[in-house]
Design a protein around this nucleic acid. Structure first.
Lengths: 390, 390
DNA sequence: CATTAGTTAATCAGTCTGCCTATTAATCAA
DNA sequence: TTGATTAATAGGCAGACTGATTAACTAATG
């Protein structure tokens, strides 16, 4: 229930932040267009835009032409109002970083990849150095950055400030995030990498116009991200989506088989080997299977995947399930069709299933998207907080 | 992102609705207390309360005393501002109804139970008659009712307006809800009964102060409700929580065992019988087992339940899992302890588990709670909509 | 008499309506 | 083809209006 109360100052703050929000997500607008969206009068719209430009939050980027009458000025959010950095921390054979800066409108200014030996260089130093290098490449200064979004293969517990379930050396130390924020002089947020992939899927992939979806990530590890109307579900301790722990089958007492044993990277490779496919990794195995038409292996794999999806679908009933990660991407539509068939054969659930539509680095794109959104929130909040502390 | 923009009228509407909202959920307040909560000035607070009382939404219910100075008037939401009806439609051996009316503050005015033979009387007629009778019992008129909340053992698809997965005769007909609303002349909302039990659990049970929780319902059927910060998760087609479809074990192709086959009412009874307990129903069997200390049966049952909870916990990581429904209630703490042990033995998840704290009819209480909230929203919205259509 | 509840009057902030001017494209006459 | 005329639109300005605030004031209570 809305509980906002106040005086005319609140009104101005609301009108300004609403206008800025429209500039952010409806793109460039004329005064007239903004007037229609906000329902404000001509003088007020003018005043709001004057103040936003004075504050460096909006700029005139052009003029209309063609129609009768004067050419209306076209306003847009000032891209230089703040930059966001996205960082993807990867745990492959060698730990590595992918990072990028973008402006408030989401345009990427610079991008880089780096190997990083976290056993020798501590994470704070490595990230700080990488960000500074990125800034010089982008031709900007670190001061302009308003938010750094990290994506890590683990879950972040905001109450304790610790990244858990992470295998990259040095990254599970308590206080790391605070120290990094201190060093960079910028707010730092941490998010699970699969969650960020889901953010990218909503922004650029197949989940663009969907109410919500579950993204299942098949790679070396196994992950799940849940998007409910654009909001991520993280769970009590950031542990939502630890789908690898879904039990498979009953057993008396002791620990038994779970989903990780069935469709984790190693399990997939083992299954492939059992079907006579010997390759370097799980993704390669699946790609080879698709190429050579090894249907038996694919349908065996699909059976296993269907178990996990059935559990997710029964609990959440998502409007869409997206298969992502290098293994799923290697499988493509062939794997998707096999999974659909397996699911239909076993349960009455008819949840639509799709393969990811993000071809670029999904985690990095998602981190940028989250970062930009955070910067926008900050800027809108700045206006809102013009309300005096009573 | 907030997009509200407007002029001084909006301000008044906001201040009034915020004040009313505070009266609703902080209970009776003096002018001074409301002033602190809203941050408004003395004259404005007075004006707002004057308008609310004029509109019949607030009343003076008393005066302070004891301190120096005049006695402050104590304001409260006018209980007569609107009534809500909750109806629980049950599918037992004989279909039956439980219903109650309460005022805007949640005080129950009248309550009734009724058998209803929906094979012979159509649902619209039966509900309408029951509501009218309830009104005379409560000494009020049906006009005063602003919302009717139904709880049904099935899922309601708001897009098609059809109640699905329901076994009570006549209730799966398309357009039923609209016809009922027409006949009663009041908005009618439908919700899954387990979801309503979760609402009651949050309002009156063990989930009062928790961020979110998953409520697993064990009765004749099997259900799951997911509460995320007080918001229910319903799924794409109202099918979230169809936990009975969670698969158990791998199988090649054909339909195999699912959770319903494991812990549905019949399955529990069969399991009890296998352990030498012959009773009329699942709940009785469990109660008998607890009374007689039949630990083997209980731990076998707990093993099965743990599979379901593990799946839910792995997907959602809820801060709490609540066991509810007559079977769980019969099991009580003994069953809870057995389930905790079974869960710890099989998975690394350490989600807290509790038995329901609602002893009264949870579905009916939840329906009343939902109904009251809907009426409050309507009233607050009335004030908000004082904003002219430009 | 000190303290508090609530009202009244004057003021201030912010938006709205209505009118005005300037600018552009289209149309029409020479 | 060119210049004048007209219609349509962008944006600014002045005065009215709404609603909240501050500050002073009245009245009630221990």
């Amino acid at each position: 229930m809305e509980r906002l109360a106040g005086s005319s100052r609140l009104l101005r703050a609301m009108n300004e932040s609403a206008s800025l929000a429209y500039l952010f997500d409806r793109g460039p607008l004329t005064r007239g267009a903004l007037r229609e969206l906000t329902g404000l009068s001509k003088p007020t719209t003018s005043e709001v835009l004057r103040r936003l430009t004075d504050a460096g939050l909006a700029i005139v980027i052009g003029h209309t032409s063609g129609g009768p009458g004067p050419n209306a000025e076209i306003y847009a959010a000032n891209p230089e109002a703040g930059y966001a950095v996205g960082v993807s921390v990867r745990e492959t054979r060698l730990p590595s970083l992918a990072l990028a800066v973008c402006d408030i409108n989401g345009a990427v200014l610079a991008r880089a990849e780096r190997a990083a030996d976290f056993a020798r260089v501590e994470p704070e130093a490595a990230i700080t150095a990488a960000v500074e290098e990125l800034c010089t490449e982008a031709g900007t200064v670190p001061d302009r950055i308003r938010h750094v979004q990290l994506g890590v293969p683990g879950s972040y517990d905001p109450t304790s400030g610790v990244i858990r379930h992470i295998d990259v050396p040095g990254w599970n130390r308590p206080g790391l995030v605070d120290r990094l924020a201190d060093r960079l002089g910028v707010p730092v947020a941490v998010e699970n990498d699969v969650n960020l992939a889901a953010v990218a899927e909503r922004a650029h992939g197949v989940a663009r116009d969907v109410d919500g979806f579950a993204l299942v990530w098949f790679s070396f590890g196994l992950g799940l991200a849940i998007d409910l109307g654009g909001q991520l579900l993280r769970g009590a301790r950031g542990g939502a989506g630890e789908i690898g722990y879904v039990p498979v089958g009953l057993r008396g007492g002791g620990p038994g088989t779970d989903l990780h044993d069935l469709v984790g990277g190693q399990a997939v490779q083992a299954l492939a080997a059992a079907h006579g496919l010997r390759t370097a990794g799980a993704a390669d195995a699946v790609a080879a299977a698709v190429a050579s038409g090894a249907d038996e292996f694919l349908s065996a794999l699909a059976d296993r995947i269907a178990v996990g999806i059935a559990a997710v679908a029964a609990v959440l009933d998502p409007p869409l399930v997206v298969l992502a990660g290098d293994v799923a991407q290697a499988g493509g539509d062939a794997l998707r069709d096999a999974v659909v068939a397996a699911l239909r054969a076993t349960t009455p659930l008819d949840t639509p299933i799709a393969v990811t539509g993000v071809t670029d680095d999904a985690v990095l794109l998602g981190a940028l998207d989250c970062g930009v959104r955070a910067v926008r929130e900050t800027l809108v909040g700045t206006l809102r907080d013009a309300i005096p502390p009573s």
